[in-house]
């Protein structure tokens, strides 16, 4: 098939004609699909808000019914809940959502904005994540101070080496390890998904 026989290097008209022959998709249902999707998106957002309110309410009710809760437990739990809430809030604010982008702007500007957002997202797993893990460890340790019974503090049996320090060390290490694993997974995803995209978008941004 000699495609070039009708084309010189200086004109694209012939290719333009071929280009016009590209068959269209059968997209008669597109508008109906879009309306449906729009409706579901709004519904899902409402459901998310209701779910968060329900979880928080049930947590507060459960805590208020528990007896013999020491001040340390309250402080520890408060630190854990507050740091989680703050981190989730920060995460959601800086998370890369394509819906936050304005698709109607010039591609160079679009690429620049997307890169900025992607870099901001990468930043979540730097100092903010480290602070979150440290606060989780602190909260858990304060909570355990109020939870570990006195009997465990002073061993009366030879078989139980009940040094509370063990609890603190074990849980601190567990939280730190979970954080480290989470960080590793995120870094891997950044290398695999985010950085190549930034690199690709940079070509548009620079020009």
């Amino acid at each position: 098939m000699k495609l070039l026989k009708n084309m010189t290097m200086n004109e694209l008209d012939y290719l333009g004609k071929i280009w016009g022959e590209i068959p269209a998709t059968d997209s008669t249902q597109t508008i109906a699909k879009l309306k449906k999707l729009d409706f579901f998106q709004k519904r899902i957002n409402r459901l998310k808000v209701v779910a968060i309110i329900l979880i928080l309410t049930s947590l507060i009710i459960t805590l208020s019914f528990l007896s013999n809760i020491t001040l340390e437990v309250y402080i520890g739990v408060s630190i854990i809940i507050a740091s989680t809430a703050i981190f989730i809030g920060y995460y959601l604010k800086n998370q890369f959502y394509t819906s936050k982008l304005d698709y109607g702007v010039e591609s160079a500007r679009f690429a620049h904005e997307a890169i900025t957002m992607l870099r901001r997202q990468n930043g979540i797993f730097g100092l903010p994540f480290l602070m979150f893990i440290l606060f989780m460890i602190a909260g858990a340790n304060i909570m355990f101070l109020g939870m570990i019974p006195d009997s465990a503090m002073t061993p009366d049996s030879e078989s139980v080496p009940a040094n509370p320090l063990y609890f603190h060390i074990i849980f601190s290490v567990l939280i730190a390890l979970s954080g480290f694993l989470g960080l590793l997974v995120r870094r891997w995803r950044i290398r695999r998904e985010v950085n190549p995209l930034i690199e690709e978008l940079s070509r548009f941004d620079k020009e």
């Binding site: 982008l101 698709y103 109607g104 010039e106 591609s107 679009f110 690709e200 978008l201 548009f204």
Partner: peptide, 8 residues
């Protein structure tokens, strides 16, 4: 623009 940016 929307088409090109979505493709990106």
């Amino acid at each position: 623009r929307v088409a090109v940016n979505t493709a990106l």
